[in-house]
């Protein structure tokens, strides 16, 4: 299984170009998980103790509202990460994350990873810089979506 995780991590787009040793550090804290279509990877309100490297399918980020059911806020494609709340206090999941297809994801224990990164600040910086680029991208996308570009002007 470790070998499989190592192979998945080595080929993962999110980790491409990170310093040598990144895959080994992550693999020490990782396990492979299999999800059936429709299963939750993350649940709103839970402790954010895991992030997932998606391979190779898609996950929807959702929130549930009374009378409205599930709102699908975003979708995360292959080669990306699901779960950001693990990176900073209060370490609590803010949204649900649901597998849209049967998939294998690499689940990384964030407490274990934070401890490893504390021992290797250069690697920690590189990984958090990569995570910041994901965050910036999602923030920019969220801002553009607020414009409702395809909506009718009279609706705004």
């Amino acid at each position: 299984m470790t070998e499989t995780i190592h192979e998945i991590l080595s080929a993962h787009r999110f980790l491409s170009g990170l310093p040598e040793g990144t895959v080994e550090v992550l693999a020490e804290c990782a396990r492979a998980e299999t999800f059936e279509s429709g299963r939750l990877l993350l649940h709103e309100g839970d402790v954010a103790d895991t992030f997932h490297l998606i391979h190779p399918v898609r996950v929807s980020i959702e929130i549930h509202g009374p009378g409205h059911g599930r709102h699908i806020l975003d979708s995360v494609g292959p080669g990306l990460t699901v779960g950001l709340s693990w990176a900073a206090p209060p370490f609590r999941c803010q949204f649900d994350a649901r597998s849209l297809e049967p998939e294998v994801a690499v689940a990384v224990d964030s407490e274990c990873l934070r401890a490893r990164l504390g021992e290797n600040p250069a690697l920690g910086y590189a990984l958090l810089e990569r995570l910041a680029s994901v965050l910036i991208g999602r923030l920019q996308v969220a801002r553009v979506r607020l414009l409702d570009l395809y909506g009718n002007d009279s609706d705004r």
Binding site: L73, S75, G77, L100, V141, Y150
Partner: peptide, 23 residues
């Protein structure tokens, strides 16, 4: 195809069109 606003049961992509480019 991606949509700005997803609804329950939508199995496709949600997000702006540029997010389709990497794939």
């Amino acid at each position: 195809v991606t949509v700005d606003v997803g609804i329950s049961g939508w199995p496709g992509r949600v997000g702006v069109v540029t997010t389709l480019l990497p794939d």
